[in-house]
């Protein structure tokens, strides 16, 4: 099947859990990395405690778990360019975009310019984007 014939669907992965306390965040990230091989239109949403997955400065040596916060920075290499962070979830947690890692991708259509992957959206805006998806997966 050539690229032109291939059917591309819109997949959204919704992350609502904090990292480390439960396994959801890491499981979601692994599924995303695997799914990225299938050339689909992928987006990630971080809402509620999911926003904690993206915080800067995570250091896990003392709790003996793998620091997978570094792996979010590889998402650009996997052509994942749409990462939605819900605004209200950040605000109720006393966080701003500055508390999150700076995630980027290279835009092939714009001479490989580095662009921000994270987009801050309201719950209402996110709801509309969710409705546009063919497949929604929840973690």
């Amino acid at each position: 099947m050539s690229d032109a014939e291939q059917i591309t669907k819109k997949f959204m992965y919704i992350n609502r859990k904090a990292p480390y306390g439960t396994i959801y965040a890491w499981e979601s990230l692994e599924v995303v990395l695997i799914a990225a091989a299938f050339d689909q239109d992928i987006s990630l949403a971080f809402i509620d405690d999911g926003v904690y997955q993206l915080t800067k400065g995570q250091k896990t040596e003392a709790i003996g778990l793998k620091n997978f916060s570094a792996t979010y920075r590889a998402l650009g290499d996997y052509d994942i360019q749409k990462i939605y962070v819900e605004k209200e979830s950040l605000e109720t947690r006393g966080l701003t975009l500055d508390d999150l890692q700076h995630l980027v991708y290279e835009d092939e259509d714009d001479d490989y310019a580095e662009k921000d992957s994270i987009k801050l959206v309201s719950a209402d805006e996110l709801g509309k984007i969710m409705e546009e998806q063919n497949v929604v997966l929840s973690f």
Partner: peptide
């Protein structure tokens, strides 16, 4: 617990 703060990047504020 400091190690849990460190792991989550919650050291400030």
């Amino acid at each position: 617990l400091q190690p849990d703060l460190d792991a989550r990047g919650m050291n400030s504020s």
